[in-house]
């Protein structure tokens, strides 16, 4: 199923398919947030923002507005 990274539920894994490169900080790309890589949503902050993901073995927190710019294809559902 296609969605944006912001649409993932806690514990879901997905593959990054595409993103709006102008809206994504370069630093995030360098941490491995690149098309083809698997991303897992680990935590959502209590107030709904930011989210805490694991991509390419990098554990990072990013804001929703950034996550919305990243398209993903969901591969697993919450267990």
């Amino acid at each position: 199923m296609k969605t944006s990274l912001a649409g993932l539920k806690k514990g879901q894994k997905a593959i990054i398919t595409d993103f709006n490169i102008d809206a994504i900080p370069l630093k995030l790309l360098e941490m491995g947030c690149l098309p083809g890589n698997v991303v897992e949503l680990l935590q959502i902050a209590p107030l709904g923002d930011p989210i805490y993901i694991n991509v390419n073995d990098s554990h990072v927190a990013i804001r929703m507005e950034t996550a919305e710019e990243i398209d993903v294809e969901i591969i697993t559902d919450t267990i």
Partner: peptide, 11 residues
């Protein structure tokens, strides 16, 4: 400005 925030969560 475009806010941007990337924070690594160390082990």
């Amino acid at each position: 400005y475009k806010s941007f925030f990337v924070a690594e969560m160390p082990n």
